[in-house]
Amino acid sequence: MDSRQRILNRVRQYQPALVELPAHLQSGITFADPRAQFLTVLEQVGGRGTVASDLTDAESFVRTLPVMEDAKTVVSLVKGIGVGNLDINSCQEPRELVGVDVAIAAGKFAVAENAAIWVTDENLKHRAIYFICQHLVLVVPASEIVDNMHQAYARLGGAFDRPGFSAFISGPSKTADIEQALVIGAQGARSLTVVLVESL
């Protein structure tokens, strides 16, 4: 008998009486102003946020970001924010992205309770870009902010039917592994800037 069968047999043999699967929780915390809540929590988790009226406005905001000043290599994955100088598709290997100073990518939606932003590798050659860049800028439709994680997963519905990578990102990479002192910029992006765009 192989290990698979042995484990399954044992788990079946020891199976306790059925405990019913509870229905999904229907409610979670909601906010009078989800956008304000999102921006507040974003700051608490070490990120920075702003609201832009449209993509042109967003682009000029990105151009003036302090992290853009010394940036040599910039990848923009957002159509309409033409500040990039490296085409990610020209890189065969994700390792080639190690020199990227700033990456601008699209977030699908945001969550007010924890400042998490949903990103995926749909039409993206190297998902590593979210983590290997020194500074990350996420552009998110301002209208797409849900209150809590229950609403977030309800809206994700069939998103996992096909192979792919996706993640909630909340703030920049951080650690407190040395005496519980919070340090921003552990292994991933050193900073996260979120641009909420009102009309996309």
């Binding site: 608490q44 809590n148 994680m149 309800a154 990578f165 996706s166 909630f168 990479s173 991933g188």
Partner: peptide, 25 residues
Amino acid sequence: LGVFLRLLARSATGQPITTYSSHFH
């Protein structure tokens, strides 16, 4: 995950969620 991700980081370190919650399919 809506339930567990809300509980995990809050219980662990007092964060509303970890910086990265990555889903590999």
